[in-house]
Computed example of a mutant assay.
Amino acid sequence: MSANEIGREVAELLFKAGAIHVSRQQPFILAAGWASPVYVDVRLLLGDPDLRQAVSDLAARYATAAFASGSLEAIAGAETAGIPFAAWLADRLALKLRYVRKRPLGIGRNAQVEGGPVEGLRVLLMDDLTTDGGSKLNFARGLRAAGAEVEHVLTIFYHDAFPGAGERLKEAGLRLHALANWGDVLRAEGGGGLAPEDRAEIERFLADPVAWSTRHGGRTRLAPRS
């Protein structure tokens, strides 16, 4: 199964879960501060057994194709929604499981990592959603501080409208892998269920998301690179 086929199937699962929310009247303010007419709630995949089984199978197919056998030793789920997705993927790939907190709890080298030591382990960081990549940098720093080797981030959905995430992660020695993005959502058969005015608003947003965010009270520019 190709990456494009996986992207299309994940997008279909998101539509089945009712995870694609469009609001033309009141914009969503995403965690990264951007204003958007659409919000993808990947966490809705967690609640349905068929949907979570399906997305976990697709994640395993992607990982098997993307990473050489033996190149990963553990999956680390990002607090909070990344943890169950990481657990299901770790089971399918027969790898160790860890999770990484948003901030250290307590003191010591492993204050941000739970589930066991990661020193010397080749770890895949996993999360449900990526927007600007800022939280992924924080999670990777926590894992690396505990001695893990972290070079890859896997996310269920990449909100790739706003530029800069891939570049920021690359500068930090991280490669972003996404099962699905906006192109997959708009190409998915389930996307045909979008009302014409909703699809038109999404397309206007995607044409210039920074300007759209600025007009609707969200962030007005990219964050400076550290």
Score class of each variant (00 low, 15 high):
residue 50 D to E: 14
residue 98 R to A: 09
residue 209 P to L: 13
residue 57 D to M: 11
residue 125 L to H: 03
residue 110 N to P: 00
residue 75 I to L: 09
residue 190 G to L: 05
residue 203 E to P: 02
residue 99 Y to I: 03
residue 226 S to Y: 08
residue 147 G to L: 10
residue 56 S to L: 09
residue 192 G to V: 02
residue 155 T to G: 04
residue 41 D to P: 06
residue 62 Y to H: 09
residue 76 A to H: 07
residue 174 L to H: 05
residue 100 V to A: 00
residue 66 A to T: 03
residue 115 G to D: 00
residue 171 E to H: 13
residue 5 E to S: 14
residue 101 R to M: 07
residue 82 G to S: 01
residue 212 W to T: 10
residue 141 R to K: 14
residue 56 S to E: 10
residue 97 L to M: 12
residue 26 Q to M: 14
residue 62 Y to E: 06
residue 157 F to C: 11
residue 105 L to Q: 08
residue 81 A to T: 03
residue 205 F to K: 09
residue 141 R to N: 06
residue 116 G to R: 07
residue 83 I to C: 10
residue 187 R to W: 06
residue 112 Q to S: 10
residue 118 V to N: 03
residue 5 E to G: 10
residue 136 K to Y: 10
residue 215 R to Y: 01
residue 201 E to F: 12
residue 140 A to H: 03
residue 68 A to Q: 13
residue 66 A to C: 05
residue 122 R to S: 15
residue 171 E to R: 15
residue 16 K to S: 08
residue 94 A to D: 15
residue 82 G to C: 00
residue 171 E to W: 10
residue 200 A to E: 15
residue 124 L to A: 08
residue 99 Y to Q: 05
residue 54 A to H: 03
residue 107 I to G: 15
residue 126 M to W: 01
residue 143 L to N: 06
residue 207 A to T: 12
residue 156 I to E: 00
residue 71 S to L: 11
residue 216 H to I: 13
residue 215 R to G: 10
residue 224 P to V: 06
residue 214 T to W: 11
residue 140 A to S: 09
residue 132 D to T: 11
residue 48 D to K: 08
residue 1 M to Q: 09
residue 107 I to A: 14
residue 20 I to G: 02
residue 166 G to M: 05
residue 130 T to H: 03
residue 16 K to W: 06
residue 66 A to H: 02
residue 223 A to H: 15
residue 79 E to W: 08
residue 154 L to K: 06
residue 121 L to W: 04
residue 210 V to L: 13
residue 59 A to Y: 02
residue 131 T to F: 10
residue 70 G to C: 07
residue 81 A to H: 00
residue 61 R to V: 09
residue 16 K to R: 15
residue 26 Q to G: 11
residue 49 P to K: 01
residue 71 S to E: 12
residue 176 L to K: 03
residue 226 S to R: 14
residue 167 E to K: 13
residue 99 Y to L: 07
residue 169 L to Q: 00
residue 54 A to P: 00
residue 198 D to Y: 14
residue 201 E to C: 14
residue 61 R to E: 15
residue 40 V to H: 08
residue 111 A to W: 03
residue 47 G to D: 15
residue 219 R to N: 15
residue 2 S to P: 12
residue 221 R to K: 15
residue 196 P to A: 13
residue 55 V to N: 02
residue 75 I to R: 04
residue 168 R to G: 04
residue 88 W to Q: 10
residue 14 L to M: 12
residue 29 I to M: 14
residue 3 A to K: 02
residue 208 D to T: 09
residue 6 I to V: 12
residue 173 G to S: 11
residue 120 G to K: 08
residue 72 L to W: 08
residue 213 S to I: 13
residue 194 L to I: 01
residue 103 R to P: 01
residue 22 V to L: 07
residue 10 V to A: 02
